[in-house]
Design a protein around this nucleic acid. Sequence first.
DNA 1: GAGCCTATCGCGAATGGTCGCAATAGCCTT
DNA 2: AAGGCTATTGCGACCATTCGCGATAGGCTC
Lengths: 140, 140
Amino acid sequence: MTLAESVRASGRRLTLQRQLVLEAVQRARHHVTADEIARRVRSRFPAIGPSTVYRNLQALDELGLVTHTHLDDRVTRWHRADRHPHGHLVCRVCGEETEIRPAVLEAMAKRLRDEHHFEPDLAHSAIVGVCRRCRDVPSS
Amino acid sequence: MTLAESVRASGRRLTLQRQLVLEAVQRARHHVTADEIARRVRSRFPAIGPSTVYRNLQALDELGLVTHTHLDDRVTRWHRADRHPHGHLVCRVCGEETEIRPAVLEAMAKRLRDEHHFEPDLAHSAIVGVCRRCRDVPSS
DNA sequence: GAGCCTATCGCGAATGGTCGCAATAGCCTT
DNA sequence: AAGGCTATTGCGACCATTCGCGATAGGCTC
């Protein structure tokens, strides 16, 4: 199924803006914010508004083409959905961000599935806490 | 150490606004938003501004008197810090919120401590996923 | 109790993100 | 190729939250 087909199959339309937003996310090496995407899209299509970018990110998310992650600030980070999944540890003291292997998430997910019949998406939000360095140096 | 003493010990001052914000959080039965706190405080102190409420919540958080949690919406929920800790499961389909026992969090936390030397605060953000009901009825 | 230092206040602007609306434009049908 | 239905757009207002500023007021010292 082509991109156009899968977009239309969901009752949506394939607009130029939607294609440009998707391309911008796919081309980005790491996680990008909506504002960064908007700036990149505007370089080729200057009239695009911020709300169009947000709405398209949400639509592409529902289509399974992109996903987003919440680190500990208020900004949402977007990335393509076909990358290997991974979790994030964020230190609330120094702000350090570490990626963790999916195997660790999977082990934690199993317990929630077994005990709560809940299918968690542990990559959706970063796990906030205190990293090794900041824990070893209490500094208080 | 009294409240006044512990506030002053951190180089802070005990203002009327700060006391009212703390009382409002302590009196709330469940998690409350900053806006709900602001409305309650304004009933006795109408001139208080929103930013004062936010700043005081942050100060009280740093003092260890209140804490906050992020569910899957855009608003922060506040509650007193001396309650038993618990985690949250939030269904991204139907929005259902479930509390989970600290023991489950503790088991997950152990792995992050052991493998990453990271002390996680798993109650800080809700775990987003799909609940039993929405998983059993794919509806797609 | 008065004076001083500065934490805190209220205000207004800014930020990241969402929403309602009228105008535009995909895409299906003919 | 034209017409019509409606998803989507750009816009502006709004929401939750933060920040910079000059004014106010805790609380320490004398």
